[in-house]
Design a protein around this nucleic acid. Structure first.
Lengths: 150, 150
DNA sequence: TGTCCAAATGCGAAATATTCTCATTCTTAT
DNA sequence: ATAAGAATGAGAATATTTCGCATTTGGACA
């Protein structure tokens, strides 16, 4: 669905999503576009593959579960989403928007808050250097009881 | 198997492991003793339930896989081991000895190094306070390429 | 030390989560 | 529009973990 005809004089691409996919080296297939648009439109930040599958089904966009898994993994490789391994054994995915952050998770209700701490970021690089590693990524998750659950 | 008869004058308990289990509120059953002894004797720090199962089989101590899972979970609750969710989707367990530490994992070869950083520990408490959480635990894993794999 | 009861174990079935296979359908370059 | 290769869908296959239940065991107490 293009809107270029409604904005004469401005040369628009078919959609931001198509473009984002192509920049990521991924063909702009319908399932991928739908999944990306879904991730951008939902206000739930952390979703399992199953969550994505069911939510999309509910809104009438059926995409096979295997494809959801494949596409989310591709999005992860492309840097479009981040995969987290919170407690529970299954992966959850988060659309990468804005800046990097870490998470603090309530072990009672599952609520997830985001935070960013420059000091911690810096220390991690010091630690990686000390151990001879080149950091590719990191995952810091603090677990605790949130104020609602105390 | 007790050794108290060989140390006259010293009142020894049946074994450290039996004692550790009882202090943890767990009956000193044979499978639990074997698993605990195995964890204490191996020099591999991070093991999956399957790893524990197979290694014990190899050394002639067969314990059902379901029991391994149950016992490791109980040990976790009792604070004897820590469960980690490194990349790969399955849990690995680590015997708690010495002090808390975090991990830096090589994404190529899987090597795991431990580190402890007081500054990061402190910042986490500040962050939890700021968000109204009582920390119960935390998991910081840095991912990178180790010096061998560069 | 023998007995008894609750708790623990073993084993296979079931549940979950994720990946794979392969026939069919799209995408995109031409 | 067409062809070649990539992507998808559906279900089978795998991997990991849990569950149900019959049997065994640990340990409190007589």
């Amino acid at each position: 669905m293009t809107i270029k005809h409604y904005l004469p004089g401005i040369m628009m691409k078919d959609s931001n999503e198509t473009n984002d996919l192509q920049k990521a080296g991924l063909k702009a297939t319908l399932p991928r576009l739908k999944i990306l648009k879904f991730l951008e439109s939902t206000d739930i930040r952390h979703l399992s593959a199953e969550d994505v599958y069911k939510s999309m089904l509910d809104s009438g966009d059926e995409v096979g579960l295997a494809t959801i898994y494949r596409v989310l993994t591709q999005f992860e490789s492309a840097g479009l989403v981040t995969r987290h391994h919170f407690e529970g054994g299954h992966s959850v995915f988060e659309l990468n928007e804005g800046k990097h952050h870490d998470h603090i998770v309530c072990v009672k209700c599952g609520k997830v808050e985001e935070f960013y701490d420059e000091t911690i970021e810096e220390r991690q690089h010091v630690i990686a250097d000390k151990n001879g590693f080149n950091i590719t990524d990191h995952a810091l998750t603090i677990y605790g009881i949130c104020s609602d659950c105390k």
